[in-house]
Amino acid sequence: MSLSTVFKTTALAAAATLCLGGAIAQATPSPASHTATHDRHARTIVAVAAGDSRFSTLVAAVQAAGLVNTLNGSGPFTVFAPVNEAFDALPQGAVEGLLQPRQRDRLVQILTYHVVAGRISAADLATAVRVGNGRATLTTVEGGELVVTAAGRGRLRLTDAAGDHFDIVVADVAASNGVIHAIDGVLMPH
């Protein structure tokens, strides 16, 4: 079975688990004033990510790390979520290794390095960069720092502790307990 098949199977299982809870909630009659937009915003970061095929590898990693309940919490959180292609760009065997139970602590460290406390929009990040004379520093839940800079054409770039640079490719994916910004790389803490 290929790695991509494993991730897709795990992600589908995660989505089914998360959606089952949502199906029970949706089976309860709701006032007519509830719209599809409200339903989208009522979903947590994990539910939003599980419902988006671009994040299937991330969802599998969050499950393996035991962080589903944390990221389903009240937050709010800002998650810089690597897209599947970002994980594919890691050295061969890196993702498989991190998903092993003996690597759980390292996986938790890496994933929590992608999370910042609070709901920070792309506009907030751009303002912080502008006010900070071209850069803003964020402290992650893991305790490390990320540097945000402008990347031209209105894009924002993150620099991790390893000095690698990754761009926000999709900003402001709303969730009930925060916001997701899709990025094109996997951030690495110290």
Rank of each mutant, 00 (worst) to 15 (best):
107 L>N: 06
75 G>S: 14
156 L>S: 12
40 R>G: 13
185 G>C: 03
130 R>G: 03
185 G>H: 04
38 H>P: 08
48 V>A: 11
24 I>W: 14
21 G>A: 12
9 T>Q: 10
10 T>R: 15
25 A>E: 09
74 S>M: 09
27 A>H: 13
138 L>R: 05
37 T>S: 13
45 I>D: 12
184 D>Y: 04
69 N>F: 06
160 D>R: 07
47 A>Q: 14
3 L>Y: 15
69 N>T: 02
14 A>P: 13
111 L>A: 07
146 L>V: 06
120 I>M: 07
176 S>W: 07
134 G>H: 08
188 M>F: 00
71 L>C: 09
125 L>G: 06
49 A>R: 12
175 A>F: 01
110 I>C: 09
99 L>T: 02
136 A>E: 09
148 V>E: 12
115 V>Q: 01
98 L>K: 05
162 A>P: 10
181 H>V: 00
139 T>W: 02
34 H>I: 08
67 L>M: 10
146 L>S: 11
73 G>P: 09
15 A>P: 00
130 R>E: 13
140 T>P: 01
47 A>T: 11
43 R>K: 11
182 A>D: 08
54 R>I: 03
49 A>P: 14
39 D>R: 15
113 Y>P: 01
162 A>C: 12
59 V>M: 05
22 G>R: 14
170 V>I: 01
162 A>N: 14
26 Q>P: 00
61 A>G: 09
7 F>M: 15
33 S>M: 12
47 A>E: 14
53 S>L: 12
117 A>P: 01
144 G>Y: 10
106 R>T: 13
79 V>M: 05
86 A>W: 02
149 T>E: 11
38 H>N: 15
71 L>R: 04
39 D>K: 13
101 P>V: 07
129 V>H: 13
167 D>W: 00
119 R>C: 01
104 R>C: 00
153 R>P: 01
163 G>C: 07
16 A>K: 13
16 A>S: 13
84 N>G: 06
156 L>V: 07
137 T>I: 03
130 R>M: 09
64 A>H: 08
45 I>G: 11
103 Q>P: 03
132 G>L: 05
111 L>K: 00
190 H>R: 08
70 T>S: 06
123 A>D: 07
178 G>E: 05
48 V>C: 09
39 D>L: 08
42 A>C: 05
71 L>Q: 03
90 L>G: 09
61 A>P: 03
81 A>Q: 08
109 Q>C: 05
45 I>W: 04
52 D>V: 12
25 A>C: 06
167 D>L: 11
8 K>H: 10
131 V>D: 15
76 P>C: 13
25 A>S: 13
3 L>E: 14
113 Y>R: 01
70 T>D: 01
147 V>D: 08
160 D>V: 04
31 P>Y: 11
157 R>I: 01
184 D>G: 12
182 A>Q: 00
139 T>Q: 10
60 A>L: 06
56 S>T: 11
70 T>C: 02
178 G>W: 01
91 P>G: 06
59 V>Q: 02
12 L>H: 14
44 T>H: 11
180 I>E: 01
5 T>C: 05
65 A>G: 02
162 A>K: 14
151 A>F: 06
89 A>E: 07
189 P>W: 05
1 M>F: 11
46 V>G: 04
16 A>I: 05
69 N>E: 09
82 P>M: 04
187 L>A: 03
128 A>W: 05
179 V>K: 00
90 L>C: 02
154 G>F: 04
17 T>H: 14
142 E>G: 00
186 V>F: 15
55 F>H: 15
173 V>M: 05
73 G>D: 08
16 A>W: 08
5 T>V: 09
